[in-house]
């Protein structure tokens, strides 16, 4: 993918205060806590945009045992920045907004974003634990009146007014979007892979608890999900090929038919030219190559 160097393209991206909303990830095999895959890519995108000026924020239960483990994963990405001069690097910093179970994260995050003057917020598309609805970004954008774009694969340039991004489309295709600041960007899984989380920076990174964002008496309980039942995910049933027919014989034949492929076509005794022609014809028939070629 074209991964332009945003620092070079943009004038002074450091003017745009940038933050990444990170969540606690779950490994797909072991279920162990760690960096969420899309959030880690968002952090990578933010680090390559503004370096160690990037701030991180997480709203979660500080009592949860595995929380520090996953948040340190993000802080461990603060290396190789600031022109790569060793010894010159700054440690990562993360604001932890304490949230008890059953509370809504959106008002907290919105208040934090407003207070800290963030104009560009990055995040993954969906959290890996909890509801994972992917709604937080949209609710924040709606609440703050920000623009939002999803499926972003790369940031091309960023200035004081807007940010130009590439949006991922299926099969490696890209679309260029210009988004007015302030905005929220949901990073796609095809964005540049996150840098390794290193132990040293992770150990040194600071996690700062911010708990005076909202009036203490305000109830932030999230009642919307009160009637929901949570259950372990069931395997989705495979859809069966059901053949509709008025005729029993046809239905039987369809059900009994072997699902073998029609079989590959094997062409032997070809000269290279003939083979080339067959290949081109096939590719054109399958619309891989366009027809109008001479």
């Amino acid at each position: 993918m074209p991964q332009p160097d945003p620092q070079a393209a943009a004038g002074t991206p450091h003017d745009v205060k940038t933050a990444v909303l990170v969540s606690s990830g779950r490994h797909p095999v072991s279920g162990r806590a760690g960096r969420a895959r899309e959030d880690a890519r968002a952090v990578e995108m933010g680090l390559s945009l503004v370096g160690a000026d990037l701030s991180l924020v997480h709203a979660g239960d500080p009592e949860q045992a595995s929380l520090r483990e996953s948040l340190e994963g993000y802080l461990g990405m603060y290396h190789g920045l600031d022109g790569g001069r060793p010894g010159d690097e700054r440690d990562g910093q993360l604001s932890l907004l304490p949230l008890r179970a059953g509370e809504d994260a959106v008002p907290l995050l919105a208040a934090w974003l407003e207070r800290s003057g963030v104009r560009l917020a990055l995040t993954g598309q969906r959290a890996e634990c909890g509801e994972g609805s992917g709604m937080v970004g949209y609710l924040l954008a709606e609440r703050l009146g920000w623009a939002i774009a999803t499926g972003v694969a790369a940031i091309e340039r960023c200035d004081a007014e807007s940010v130009t991004v590439l949006q991922a489309l299926p099969q490696g295709q890209r679309r260029r979007l210009e988004i007015r600041l302030p905005c929220l960007i949901a990073v796609d899984a095809v964005a540049e892979a996150p840098r390794q989380s290193a132990f040293g920076p992770a150990r040194r990174g600071r996690i700062e608890t911010v708990d005076d964002l909202l009036p203490a008496d305000e109830s932030r309980l999230d009642t919307g999900s009160a009637g929901w039942q949570w259950q372990p995910a069931r395997a989705r049933p495979k859809r069966l090929k059901v053949v509709k027919s008025t005729n029993a014989r046809d239905r039987f034949k369809a059900a009994a038919a072997k699902s073998s492929a029609s079989g590959g076509q094997v062409l032997t005794d070809l000269s290279p030219e003939e083979a080339a022609e067959k290949l081109i014809d096939y590719l054109r028939a399958e619309k891989i190559l366009a027809q109008d070629d001479q």
Binding site: M1, P2, W146, A147, I148, A149, T164, L166, L169, Q171, G172, Q173, R174, R175, R176, L177, E178, I179, R180, C183, V190
Partner: peptide
């Protein structure tokens, strides 16, 4: 807030192999 600047031509060699 979001303006479409059109499709981007992508070099096939630049597409990650898994998505090509």
């Amino acid at each position: 807030g979001v303006i479409d600047r059109g499709r981007v031509a992508v070099d096939p060699q630049e597409i990650p192999l898994a998505q090509a």
